[in-house]
Amino acid sequence: MSYEHTAPEHTAHEHGAHGHQHGAHDHTGHGQHTAHGSTWTMAALATLHCLTGCAIGEVLGMLIGTAFGWGNLATMVLAIVLAFVFGYSLTMRGVLRAGLDLRAAFGVALAADTVSIIFMELADNGTILVFPGAMDATLSDALFWVSLALSFVVAFSVTTPVNKWLIGRGKGHAVVHQFH
C-alpha cells in the first residue's frame, strides 16, 4: 500500500519538515537524501501510509469473513482484496484533493502503491500463515491480535527497504510527491 503521510496523507509542510530537496546525495545511508530524494524517513512514512490502508482492509476482511463463517482461504482473499482497495483509496483521496480526475488518480495510486502493497501483503499473510495457531484463532483470542500485530511489524520491516529503493528511483510513492 503506499503512503507516506501523517494520517494518510502529507502536506508540503511535512516535506519541509523532512528537508526534502532534490539533488542532494546520500553518503551515509542514515536518513540523508539520495540523488532522487529518498530517505529512510520518507520510506518509513510511505510504508506507514501503506500499512494504514492494508491494516484497515485486512481487519475488515477478517471481520467480514468471520461474521459470515467463511473459511480461512476465503477470508484471507477478501482481506487481501480489501487491503488493496483501502490502500489505493487512501492515495487516491490525496491526489483527488490535488485536482486530479478519478481516472488519473487511480493511475497514480496504481503506480504509487502496487509494489508496496504486494510486498506488504506477502509479508503480512506469510507471517500469519507460519505463526503457530494464528489461522485458527478467532477475533476474541489474544493470539489472533498478537499474530496480526506481529504480521504488521514484519510487513513494515520488509516493505520499508522496498519503498526506499522505489522512491530513490522516482517510482512507487515518489509519483505522489508532485501532487502534495
Rank of each mutant, 00 (worst) to 15 (best):
L139A: 03
S140Q: 14
L96E: 00
G172S: 11
G31H: 05
L63G: 15
G133H: 09
A55D: 02
G172H: 03
D136Y: 08
A67L: 08
L150K: 05
F152K: 05
F68M: 13
S38D: 09
Q178Y: 08
E9I: 10
E14V: 04
S147C: 06
E4V: 12
I118H: 09
A12L: 04
V77N: 11
Q21E: 14
D26F: 11
Q32C: 06
L139Y: 05
K171P: 07
A7I: 11
D113Y: 06
W165S: 13
A67V: 00
P132I: 02
A67I: 01
N72C: 00
F131V: 00
W40T: 10
L48F: 12
Y3G: 14
G16V: 06
G65Q: 03
S116G: 15
V162W: 03
A79P: 00
K171D: 02
A83T: 10
A67D: 07
W70Q: 04
H173C: 10
V81W: 13
V59H: 06
A79M: 01
V130S: 04
D26N: 12
N125C: 06
H27K: 02
Q178H: 12
V85T: 03
A174G: 09
F152A: 14
M92A: 14
A149Y: 02
T34F: 13
G16H: 09
V59M: 11
I128T: 04
A24F: 03
V108A: 08
V81L: 15
Y3V: 11
A24R: 12
Y88Q: 02
V158C: 10
H18S: 14
L60D: 06
R169H: 15
W165P: 01
L73K: 10
A44T: 11
A67Q: 03
H15Y: 05
H25L: 10
S147A: 15
A35F: 09
F131R: 02
F179C: 01
V81Y: 10
L45R: 13
V108D: 03
V59Q: 05
F68T: 06
V81I: 15
T52N: 09
T11L: 05
M76Y: 12
E4T: 11
W70V: 00
A35E: 12
G99A: 02
M76F: 13
C50G: 15
F179R: 04
A74T: 05
T127Q: 01
R103L: 11
S2W: 13
I167V: 15
T66M: 06
P8T: 09
P161Q: 10
T28E: 10
T28C: 02
G31Y: 04
I64F: 12
V158E: 02
A123Y: 03
M42C: 08
V162C: 11
H13Q: 13
T127D: 01
R103G: 14
V175E: 01
A137H: 05
F84T: 00
A142N: 10
K171I: 00
D141G: 03
G126L: 01
H177E: 15
A83F: 09
M1D: 00
H13M: 04
